[in-house]
Amino acid sequence: MSETTTDGTAPTATHPLVDGEVAPGCKKVDPIVVADGVIRQFGGLTAVDVEHVEIPRGAITALIGPNGAGKTTFFNLLTGFDRPNKGSWSFEGQSLAHVPSHKVARRGMVRTFQLTKSLGRLTVLQNMLLGARDQRGESFFAALVRPLWRAQEQSNTEKADSLLARFKLDTKREDYAASLSGGQRKLLEMARALMSDPTLVMLDEPMAGVNPALTQSLLDHVKGLKDDGMTVLFVEHDMHMVRHISDWVIVMAEGRIVAEGPPETIMQNQAVVDAYLGAHHDTDLGTLTNQQVAQIHEAAEEEVPVGLEASATETTTTDAPAEPGATAHDEEGKR
């Protein structure tokens, strides 16, 4: 990232992950996911309208944006949990559009959820074992004959134990998942996703509801995924996390990709500032002359007794609801 220019908005900005110029929807050198023209509408609301986006391979990409930007919806579309009105996308060169969610997961694109979905009345170990792929014992008739799947179960258990140790959940091995704390469940969900040796891990708000003590270890675990050769895409609100661990940031607002760039510079991008704070948040209203200032002060002083009076009438009117204006006001209050 040393080649990154400090000014992300400069027209000639380049980046080692990017093939060409850095811009919203830019081409990546080695994309793992490529999405084109993905549109999802809920009635009249267009929740997602992504023209083109590429997720770089072997990097940690953050998907950020204000509330309601369509990040989670886009996540659901990519993983087959929701169907788009239009659009196509591919994962490792193979089209994933209209592929059901379980097949998406089998191809190596595993996700977690914003609201953690640990399987409460299964033990932590059973949760983990459920994540393993291609289990022979998961077919109805083979399940009846233990020798067919005993060896595989054994090796899956060993793998689960080593992952549990890595995520410091090994002491909880035999506990029900429902007895874990919120942060431990996040860890369990991440560890469970790793049981299938995914190529792309998609984390939906991994930091939501996690206590600060656990945050650092979660951050390290996410970084660890990249060191193990996995690609990570995560949705997050916490800018601290985004700045610390991501290699690339994609910003969504109102369903569109409005900006992309490295985390060091992305927050200086005008489109990002506009998305978070509104386009006119720092529009200059002009300078005021002394006379105008004095006028404002005068008007303000005049308003004070009016305000008091208004509140006074309000209190009396609540006692005497016969007044027509007061009843209307009361009704509004009830609503």
Partner: peptide
């Protein structure tokens, strides 16, 4: 008894707890 101690039974019990989670792990719920 045979089914419920097997991986098949584990998937079934997982579905009872949360379908979407099991789906996200690549099982045809």
């Amino acid at each position: 008894w045979l089914l419920m101690r097997s991986p098949w039974g584990r998937v079934i019990k997982g579905i009872r707890e949360d379908e979407d989670a099991v789906r996200s792990l690549g099982k045809n719920v």
